[in-house]
Design a protein around this nucleic acid. Structure first.
Length: 213
DNA sequence: GGCCAGGTGTAAA
DNA sequence: TTTACACATGGC
């Protein structure tokens, strides 16, 4: 059949593009990107379904807790109640509040944080690992960064590939991309992977030939 | 009732 | 330096 070898991220990207995966979706997959809400969501979604996170974000919003200053100053017990449904609420509530405070301390405000923050800075914060750091850079700060989540791992595993760690898989994903007009951004790539895996998981048949390698 | 979801930190080996 | 486990909820 197709016979296209997928041996780097760019050929995978091109194959996914043919499937029209984002036809009825916004081009940017994370809801409310470039906001404090996205930042909070990145931590809340760790090892949890997004539907739980939506409830938590709604609760935080209703309590005026989606700004850095109100989050940092809020009673921890209130934050816990707001985010309970997302699981791991003790760790996550503390991580979120600590992060809000240290952003204010180190950058002054959220806009400066978006502009100035580095991956290393994010990784040095408690509760932020490689995936959360890249998600925040990509969807919170508008950087052209490839996010590697469980969907990505499962997809490349299905292609017969295995990687020892996050950075190796990320390097593979980025391989082959050329900075020309055809390269939209890695957020788009990530969004297509998620859509592909969601459709596959539900047993739906993708509207064209399956990926192979 | 067990399994798992858009991970991360830490304690043992 | 790896591996194993804890963290917690709710839907299937």
């Amino acid at each position: 059949m197709a016979g296209v070898m997928i041996d780097d991220g760019y050929t995978l990207y091109l194959q996914l593009q043919k499937l029209n995966l984002l036809e009825n979706k916004p081009p940017l997959w994370w809801p409310n990107p470039y906001t404090v809400e996205m930042l909070v969501g990145a931590i809340l979604t760790q090892n949890t379904k997004w539907t739980r996170v939506e409830t938590s974000l709604e609760n935080l919003k209703n309590n005026n807790l989606l700004s850095l200053s109100t989050l940092a100053q809020a009673d921890n017990a209130l934050v816990v109640e707001c985010i309970r449904t997302s699981g791991f609420f003790n760790a996550k509530s503390q991580n979120i509040q600590r992060l809000a405070q240290v952003i204010l301390d180190d950058f002054g405000d959220f806009e400066t944080f978006q502009e100035m923050v580095s991956r290393e800075w994010l990784l040095s914060q408690k509760g932020i690992g490689p995936e959360s750091a890249d998600a925040i850079l990509c969807y919170g700060c508008g950087r052209d960064v490839m996010v590697v989540d469980k969907y990505t791992q499962q997809l490349v595993l299905a292609l017969g590939l295995e990687f020892d760690n996050y950075e190796d898989l990320q390097s593979w994903c980025v391989q082959g991309f050329v900075r020309d007009e055809r390269h939209q951004d890695f957020a788009h790539f990530h969004g297509m992977i998620v859509e592909y895996m969601k459709k596959n998981k539900k047993g739906k048949v993708i509207n064209t030939e399956p990926l192979d390698r």
